Simulated scan of single mutants.
Amino acid sequence: MKRKWLLLCFLLFLFAGCSLKDLDKRFFVVSMGIDALEEGTKKYRVSLKLAIPSPKIVPGKENFQIITEDANSIAEAVRNAKSKVDKELDFAHAKVFVLDEDIPKADMLDIIDWFTRRRDIQEISWLTIGRPSAYDVLKVKPKSERLPSNALFLTFGREGTESPYIITTYLFDFYRRLHEKGLDPYMPVTEARKGYFLIDKVALFDKKGIKLVLNRHDTRILNELMTSFEKFSIKVKDGGLLYYINIENLKITYDLQDRKNGSGLDIMITANLTGIVEEAQKNISPDAIPHLEKLAAKEMDGRLSKVLKQLQQQELDPIGFGERYLASHYNKDEDWKKWKELYPKAVFRIQTQVKLESSGTIK
């Protein structure tokens, strides 16, 4: 019996050493920004956006604090930032990480590696490029925002707005694309404006850093190619008249075909779209529907071809054609070398079919 009491006292002694901190002794980091600094100074400026709890949740009245620290590594900056606050920094609620587009290519790999190694950072966090800087993006305070950084959470999570110009990327997916052959990473570009964010471009990466930033129109088309995003419109010209077709359903499939003589590769792309006429400059008769469908299919072919050739010229592959090629071949190293020779010369063969379900409702 005496031994049992001694064992129980020993266990209680161990439990008494628990280092867990209560919620009121923690600062929750909701978003984080990393900017590159000029040569001759520290490498990074790390900004932490800390949420300050409030008894009332009122749009435009959220409270937050931004702590900045210059250092030569992210880990060093975070440790130094702790000396500026009175509570423990907690990254469990950090869901958006904003990076400066001027961060050197080699440093980008180190930063992503730090994100993935920390056990308290969620792998489903979102990554974005910040303009003019990551710090400027963190400072934006939208009038409709009820909680710190919630505007970005709603945007990237598509729980609020659903825009064809917004392409999102998760931390786990970006890390995978950095290391996976035949699949290149990308990030949306978030521009800080007075009281709101503008997110309508995407930055494309090779395995080292940013190589190309698409404009808003090409970003929308890439979103259609990668995710079959459905809520977009096609502008169709017929003589001097303009029609706008709202696409309600989109399905895109790919197929890679080696030519029989071994001289090259054809990338077959099939796009099936259904929609309605959303805007027209004249009344549309039922007999005119097939003609509009052909014009819309031709317009879609041109849009897809333009972006695909732009990616091909830069030797970028965010869609994953190379990954699909390797999956259908069985000699990994030789096939990868062969793919790098084939992709710059591959021919895109696009087939689009558009079906208009209605010419719109006229009351």
Rank of each mutant, 00 (worst) to 15 (best):
W5S: 03
A16G: 13
D22G: 13
F27W: 06
F27N: 14
I34P: 01
D35Y: 03
E39S: 09
K43M: 05
I57T: 13
V58Y: 10
Q65Y: 00
A75E: 15
A81S: 09
A81I: 02
R118C: 00
D136P: 01
V137D: 00
V137K: 06
L138T: 03
L138Q: 06
K141I: 06
E145H: 07
F153R: 04
T155S: 15
F156N: 05
R158G: 04
R158W: 01
E159M: 13
P164R: 11
P164Q: 13
I166G: 14
R176H: 07
L178N: 14
K181S: 10
D184I: 08
D184Y: 02
D184A: 08
Y186A: 03
P188I: 02
A192N: 08
R193N: 14
K194F: 01
I199H: 10
D206V: 07
I210W: 07
V213W: 06
F229Y: 11
K235P: 11
D238A: 05
G239N: 03
G240D: 07
Y243V: 00
Y244T: 15
I247F: 02
N249S: 11
D255V: 02
L256M: 09
I269G: 03
N272C: 03
G275M: 08
A288K: 15
P290I: 01
L292E: 00
L292D: 00
K294I: 10
A297Q: 00
Q310L: 11
I319G: 06
I319K: 06
G320I: 01
S328P: 08
Y330I: 06
N331L: 11
D333E: 13
D335N: 15
K338H: 11
G360M: 12
